[in-house]
Amino acid sequence: MKISSRNTKNIRNNVAAYLFLFPFLAVFFTFLAYPVIYSLILSLHKVSWSTNLYNVFSDMKFVGLDNYIALLQDSHFWWSLVVTAYYAILTIPFTIFLGLILAILLNNKLPGVSLFRSAYFLPSVLDMLVVGVIWTLLYSPHFGILPNILNSVGYSNFMDNGILASPRTALPGVALAMVLRGAGFGMILFLSAIQNIPVSVYEAADIDGANAWQKLIYITIPLVKPIILFLVIMGTIASLNAFTEIYAMTQGGPYVVEFMGKIQGATRLSGYYLFEKWEAMKFGYAAAVSYVLLLITLVISLINARLMGKRD
């Protein structure tokens, strides 16, 4: 009797739990879990000349691993990985560095600290497309404010073409805009971590005669290391995801760099390349690109997890 009542309770609990979970799980399985498999299936297919254009996705031609073989020989894809890595190197360290500096400056007793905190954090919640469009204006030739400032200090190289039209400065230009936009996010995380460090730790260091620099290197940085690692992971994912800023500022250009015998876009990141393949209706190929990028993400995450495990 007792056992059966416990059983009914158990069943009722299960039913209730799944009723509460149902809306979330329905969306999760349809749009987040299933696409991981569906993407793999699509990557083995191709939109061909016989595909019914009103029903593309159920009428693609099976081509086996052809998309992946083509991908391995695609210089544009390899180049996009190079540019993505370069973008990650340009953005991640500077975003972290700037965020940490701001957090350390804000960790002083000063009038208006909360005002400064809001000012620094605000750009990171604003629309990335809009931020990119504004920076395009700031960078533009002849009338853009940055080329003009550089001109007034005797550096006139950017007056005719602006900053985004030169292959050397285009990606750093995008990166600068995004670093200034994103640093506030890191700042908030660092600030909450630094404020959790007990004052007594610093006081003990003072007694031992440590200067400000030593306190930074030996106390603050080791204690905020988890935040740094978190920001590295987030930054890596953001670089692999980077699309909007490129769409807003350069559309992958300028197309003047030569690599593996082909002309390449100086800022054509893999995320943007994937979008271009989607736009050209090469859905099978685009799915293959996303699958390879997914594998790269997994490998990087594993390496990160290893590094974290070693340090602890």
Binding site: F57, S58, F243, L274, T297
Partner: peptide, 27 residues
Amino acid sequence: VIFWMLLSTLMIPGMMYMVPQFALVTQ
């Protein structure tokens, strides 16, 4: 199992969902 599935999906960059989600929404 479900918890583990949710956790592992968290690491996938959103860009990778563009093609399959577009295919689903189209259908």
